[in-house]
């Protein structure tokens, strides 16, 4: 019940943008992926909007829990990217939001189990499922596409995307091999905001 109520409040806030906190009052840039207005729920059951990520750079990628092959590789690729960024700057690397494209199966419980299995701790790591909004359109803005195969698994590609503080795409990498130096340099830039 409380969860439903929270969702309703968030939805209302989304509709009446006048209710936004003052710090986020400036309109989103035209090319901000936060314009897709997704509402998400993380592994701790907390509901949040894409726009609430505004204010600092974020690393975003997409996955599904029952994925055995590409997704664990993506998690370790992001860990290596973050380590490389921190080695370069001496500061904490941007936090990570992993968004499921299989909300039918990826419940809060599933997300929590995956976080525990890979030792992914908040607030740096947020695993989230879409609650409201067009997740396929959001994914397409990141260049992520999937289709469900008859056996229930997904054909999908992997993009690890660096967003600036306003949700604009800075750079992206597929995450194979050594950490992409372009990605690491971009994330390490002091003026990235």
């Amino acid at each position: 019940m409380i969860r439903r109520w929270t969702l309703l409040v968030l939805l209302t806030m989304g509709v009446c943008s006048g209710a936004m906190p003052a710090a986020q009052a400036a309109p989103l840039p035209a090319d901000s992926v936060y314009r897709t207005g997704l509402i998400l729920r993380d592994q701790d059951g907390r509901v949040f909007t894409l726009v609430s990520l505004r204010g600092r750079p974020v690393i975003v990628s997409m996955f599904y829990v029952s994925c055995r092959d590409a997704c664990p590789l993506t998690v370790s690729a992001i860990e290596r990217l973050r380590a490389a960024i921190e080695a370069r700057t001496g500061r904490p690397a941007p936090p990570v939001v992993l968004i499921s494209f299989d909300p039918a199966h990826d419940t809060v419980r599933e997300l929590g189990m995956m976080a525990a299995m890979h030792d992914l701790k908040g607030p740096v790591w947020r695993l989230a499922r879409p609650e409201q909004g067009d997740v396929r359109a959001f994914a397409a803005t990141l260049g992520v596409f999937w289709r469900q195969r008859p056996d229930g698994n997904f054909s999908h590609n992997v993009e690890i995307v660096l967003l600036d503080a306003d949700g604009r795409i800075v750079t992206e990498t597929a995450g194979t091999g050594a950490p992409d130096p372009v990605f690491v340099r971009a994330a390490a830039r002091a003026d990235l905001r």
Binding site: D69, A70, R136, W146, R147, S155, H156, N157, A174, G175
Partner: peptide, 18 residues
């Protein structure tokens, strides 16, 4: 709707070739 996913590798284990 799924046009772009038609060109994605079957299991994305090999993203360089996707």
């Amino acid at each position: 709707d799924d046009y772009a996913a038609m060109f994605v590798n079957a299991d994305a284990r090999d993203p360089d070739r996707q």
